[in-house]
Design a binder for these strands. Structure first.
Lengths: 269, 269
DNA sequence: TATTGACTCTCCCGTTACTGGAGGCTGTAG
DNA sequence: CTACAGCCTCCAGTAACGGGAGAGTCAATA
């Protein structure tokens, strides 16, 4: 017979835990001194305790363990317990996998944005655009409707998206209620489906300006771009493009003063 | 301003949860009526609540969330939180992966054993053995030492093991203290290392008998096998083999009366 | 024999993020 | 005036222990 302290050292279970298991009826001492209340454990219980530890390591609940110990003395008796427990664990696993994925997406996005922030200058630039394939939804109406379009594209093309969202503007002047625009996502490949049009945007020389601040203030930056185009006597093509480099975050809506949007106007070649 | 019930419907958080968040200081109502104690929430808090929900879905603790909300209003501010949280989640993931693996191993083992139990007959059989590659440790001494050898082989060749453990007996008579034997694991491939000898066991005609019961009673089954060999005038080869079909389980020590051991004696060809 | 020091006992609280329930007050509609 | 829905506070419970207080016990030593 071992005292609780000895038994604790043998089994690796703490004294507290042993007392708790006694209270819960999972592992009862062989003998309890009626006078002192001291617990004494017989050597046979060592194996019993080992079984309990094993099951706890597999994250079985104490009530499951009680049930198991009451009706089984062989691994083959508990196959159903094992399988159903495996399912629960697998569900947890799935959940944590999703969380890690989400976290990864957010982290990657923010790290990109952060590194980008460093090397941005807020002057008008001329640069060369590569052609890109996009999935877009042509819309007429209010810009505020674009959210639905983006999420629809996201659902359909989720895993093929390869860059930041952008919007094509087909109006030559600013319109509020019946604007003509196309929310797009750059994709690696895919075909038009279900109202979503997959097409290629041509590359070429373009004028680019990065706008920092809320979307309502985009007008000021457009002014600069069009002023520049006029000064240089450049002719440009429709539609113009807005690339949303940094907008509302995945968690916070973010601070609109930090939003970054690139205005791109492709020149006639 | 919304009442707690309205705000609950809007945000999807239960009334209980909202009260709890108030108590914890995570999400304080905009106004609390001093007379009635009624909580009232301003529309701006909807977004705030959404942030909290998002973070909870990512399994952040409430104290983390408080800390985050107190010092950040943009995703990029919380990169460190996200990364360190990601690590914790990844650790959990690892753990659950291990558990699933262990469970799978146990389940597979037991299902095999169970299906085997059905088609076993306990008569002496003559059958054809295929050659197999094994990793073994030649030992002299007591059989009870074999556990260490098995676990050593398991550690070194873990992922290449492809069948049940077996033991080779080189003694022509029973010996207690200085037996000459070799615990082995069948493996798919591998090389001798560090005291472990990888070699091939030849195939051929063999006499086989499945023994059910504790190892101490193996003697009775050996008697039957050798009796049969004598009756048939068969000559056999050393070493003889014992295959441990079902022994102590991964969790329970199991019931020795249910242990299954196959005795194999290869005939001279 | 008294005394140490190690061991053990019970009882209570705290952890996390809530849920459930009792008992009582408030607001509004009929 | 009376329902009834909605809101309040306070308390208890969850799972599996860990920490600590205060008191009793055991074995060996002075």
């Amino acid at each position: 017979m071992f005292s609780i302290g000895e038994f604790s050292k043998i089994t690796g279970l703490t004294v507290k835990t042993l007392r708790f298991y006694h209270e819960q009826g999972v592992l009862k001492p062989s003998h309890v001194d009626p006078g002192t209340g001291y617990r004494y454990y017989a050597p046979e219980l060592i194996d019993y305790a080992r079984v309990i530890s094993s099951l706890r390591e597999l994250e079985f609940s104490l009530s499951d363990i009680s049930a198991i110990l009451n009706q089984a003395d062989d691994d083959s008796d508990i196959l159903e317990f094992l399988s159903s427990h495996r399912q629960e664990i697998a569900a947890q696993l799935e959940r944590y996998n999703q969380i890690t994925n989400s976290l990864d997406v957010i982290i990657r996005k923010e790290e990109e944005a952060r590194s980008l922030m460093g090397k941005i200058n807020y002057d008008i630039e001329e640069k060369q655009l590569e052609p890109i394939l996009v999935a877009g939804i042509r819309m007429k109406g209010r810009y505020s409707e674009c959210g639905k379009a983006f999420s629809k594209i996201g659902r359909k093309f989720g895993r093929h998206i390869c860059d930041k969202p952008l919007m094509l503007h087909y109006d030559s002047e600013y319109r509020e209620d019946d604007a003509n625009f196309e929310p797009c996502m750059p994709i690696r490949r895919g075909d038009s489906v279900d109202g979503i049009d997959v097409h290629e945007l041509r590359g070429g020389r373009c004028i680019s300006l990065i706008h920092q601040g809320p979307y309502e203030e985009l007008g000021r930056s457009y002014e600069r771009v069009f002023g520049y185009l006029r000064d240089q006597n450049y002719e440009f093509e429709m539609p113009t493009r807005e690339v949303y480099i940094k907008g509302p975050g995945m968690i916070f809506r973010g601070n609109p003063k930090k939003y970054l949007t690139e205005i791109q106007v492709v020149l006639k070649s």
